[in-house]
Design a protein around this nucleic acid. Structure first.
Lengths: 200, 200
DNA sequence: TGCATTATTGAACACTGTTCACTATTCTTA
DNA sequence: TAAGAATAGTGAACAGTGTTCAATAATGCA
């Protein structure tokens, strides 16, 4: 046997998450396995199960960091925008570009399903809510007289559109007749939706 | 050994597809396996591989029937509508309801990824194009002066939205603050988008 | 009836997530 | 310092996965 107390539980967790991200980036989704992660951090599977309940829990943590980065990316571009419409467009494009640049992780975030009974932990839901709040803000600016609930609903609607375009677009489900640029698609989608939203 | 020539290759294929659909409906996605399908149709795995190249090919066929049913469902409700807007709303809701009622199969259609090199066969892409053509028609009615390419682009946009709402909604990614009804969400999304699209 | 053909089998291989009896290292106490 | 308790870490084992392919048994034909 090798080291003991070389790393704390928290350190091993962090190492595992990092290793998992590396594997996802380099070998794509579906190549992630407990043995691969264990090997990458210099431990065996058993240790992984000492630190995570199971693979689902590890993936949940990976998805959490993905969600954080996604939010950071969206917030970053929304700083220096002149009006709510251009803010929302910039945010949508930031979402697309993150998904393009980190396809495996972005994919995992949406394709991974917990086993039947297991509910998504509330801290995860809270993170999701945080992202949507960032989308709600410019929508609120666009219609200051509407209540927060209405704008939150609109955030769900517009972000569904952006997400759907990324999902279908990046998975080759939209490339069938004529050229098709995801950037243009998303910009036009946001534009058209906001005309309707602003008018009502 | 048992029967011989009891069923033709085509019959075994059809039986396998049907069995796979049953398993998906009853046990959810992720419970599908070659051995289970083989057992369900009274053959062994070996026979399955005589009739399908691999599991991917079987799933592709399952997805093809899902796509067919999806198109049928959308076309059915679009018959007796008074105007393009109500047609598109009805189609969107039909899409949602199909996804709700056949969650496992609808899920499989979008989460299944072929191995790295393998391209989606063109007959599959053609099927997808067929569905989008059905969406393009009412959009064309809405803006008769626009060319087909513009309306096809709009079809991609609006259907991305509808699909994204189903994806996030049915996977519990939108249920975080306040009540949330997928039907209402989708209707409002389509409505707002079409205001923008009709106006331009 | 005997032979060639071929549909069908199921054991084997390399992988997966998960468990747990065991081992080796560290910490505590005498 | 020596003995013992506590525990970090292991890795073999189990049940499952997709896939292959030599062996087998049922059929059609001569």
């Amino acid at each position: 046997m090798a080291r003991r107390n070389d790393h704390s539980r928290e350190e091993i967790q962090a190492m595992a998450i990092e290793a998992a991200i590396d594997i996802l980036n380099n070998e794509g989704p579906g190549s992630l396995s407990t043995r691969k992660v264990a090997k990458a951090i210099g431990y065996t599977v058993g240790t992984l199960y000492l630190v995570f309940k199971n693979l689902d829990e590890l993936i949940l943590q990976v998805n959490a960091t993905t969600l954080d980065e996604l939010e950071d990316g969206i917030v970053a571009v929304s700083q220096d925008q002149l009006n709510p419409v251009s803010t929302l467009k910039a945010m949508a494009l930031a979402y697309l570009h993150y998904a393009q640049d980190n396809f495996a992780r972005w994919s995992l975030l949406f394709t991974w399903r917990l086993p039947e009974g297991e509910p998504v932990p509330e801290w995860f839901d809270a993170k999701v809510a945080g992202v949507f709040e960032k989308v709600r803000e410019p929508l609120q600016q666009l219609r200051p007289d509407s209540d927060a609930q209405t704008c939150l609903q609109a955030a769900r609607e517009i972000w569904s559109g952006v997400h759907g375009a990324c999902d279908l677009g990046l998975n080759g489900k939209l490339s069938f007749g004529g050229e098709f640029k995801p950037d243009t698609l998303i910009e036009s989608l946001v534009e058209n939706y906001l005309i309707g939203f602003a008018k009502a």
